[in-house]
Simulated scan of single mutants.
Amino acid sequence: MDIVARFFNPDSCDIHLNHGDLLDAIWSWIGVKAEHRQKVAELLSMMGSLRPQSSERKSKWVVIRRQLLQELNLAEAVVNRLQTVNLRFCGAADQTLARLRGALPADKLTRKALDELSDLFTYLRVWRIEKHVYIDVLMPPTESYHRDLFFQVYLIKENNPGSLIEGALLAVGGRYDYLLHQMWGHEYKTSPPGAVGTSLALETIIQHSSVDFKPIRNEASASILVCSRGGGGLLVERMELVAELWEENIKAEFVPTPDPSLTEQYEYANEHDIKCIVILTDTDVSQTGSVKQNVQLLGIPRWLDALTLGMNCKPHHSSGHTDT
């Protein structure tokens, strides 16, 4: 989304989310047989670029319904359930997740899929990517190995005021842990790592963008690794601080695991040649819920020390303790 936001207003982009296990649960709940699912998915993809709950998507459903009945000879009861899913279980993420939990059987895979979607939406909210995020349980993955979370990003333009036209696909992606598991050799004693990939439609982005493309000068600058010690990993707090550093045009990152050890985080900094580490710890949480920062600077310019400690980080308060 950071790349897309450089060319388009984020409010003009829709993010559609789904999960492979959730899609399987929906097929079963509707009653679509395994041999029909591919054909049904192809027909449903006709409305995939349209915003859930929009009048345009509801109009497209009329055409799809007729084809499901006449061309695929699906039972009317099955088609009616498909319509129910489209109307009730495709929409704004927070509302749709609650409805899905109440309607679907609480088996292990379905519960895990809903939990992962809920966690993802929480993380997107931390990074202020919460507008126009939709759960589309009828959206099939673009790749067969996307068996877990997957997404599609569309550029939505207004044809007339208040009337949306079909969206242009800007990006697709998802987790491909399944593919790694298939390729992981038995000689490896550890489990394969998680993996996620994305594809950008650069030609589409350039075609629809009104931004002038200019050469970008890649200036060397120090990066900050936001770490945690204790507190169960403080993942959300790390993400919040990274987001605020980005807003100040400061390069920052964090180890993308829920609860990494301090050793793992130091090793990550060393491997990525990161000289500045900010450590968040739960032992310094104040009564207001803010988290103090212990900043360690490893041979980087002193101006970054002052910049980091003096920056206005709203949910956080610097302890002012610096090790060099």
Rank of each mutant, 00 (worst) to 15 (best):
S286R: 10
T110C: 12
A106M: 13
N218I: 13
R99L: 15
L124N: 15
V278D: 07
L234A: 07
G232Y: 11
T198I: 13
Q152R: 08
G173A: 12
D94Q: 15
F213I: 15
D107Q: 10
D282M: 01
G173F: 08
F8W: 10
G167D: 04
T96F: 05
L149V: 14
S59G: 09
I135G: 00
G194P: 09
G289R: 08
K214F: 02
L114N: 02
L68D: 06
L309H: 03
K314L: 09
D282W: 02
F254G: 04
A34D: 11
P10V: 00
D21R: 01
N80M: 14
K314V: 14
I156Y: 01
D282C: 03
T322V: 10
R229H: 02
L280E: 05
I64R: 00
D94P: 06
S49T: 01
Y268V: 07
L304M: 10
L179T: 09
L44A: 01
L309N: 06
L225V: 12
Y176P: 05
A113H: 00
L50I: 01
I30S: 01
R6F: 04
M311W: 00
P258Q: 09
C276Q: 11
W61D: 08
S45W: 03
E187I: 15
R101M: 09
I205W: 03
A5E: 11
V291Y: 09
L179E: 12
S209D: 02
K275I: 06
R101S: 10
E166A: 08
H19A: 03
H36V: 00
M1A: 08
Q265S: 05
K214T: 14
I64A: 02
S286C: 07
V32A: 03
V133T: 01
S290M: 09
T198G: 12
V40A: 03
N218D: 13
D323Y: 05
R175N: 10
N159Y: 13
V126E: 05
V85M: 10
D11G: 07
D282G: 01
A220P: 08
E76D: 15
N18D: 07
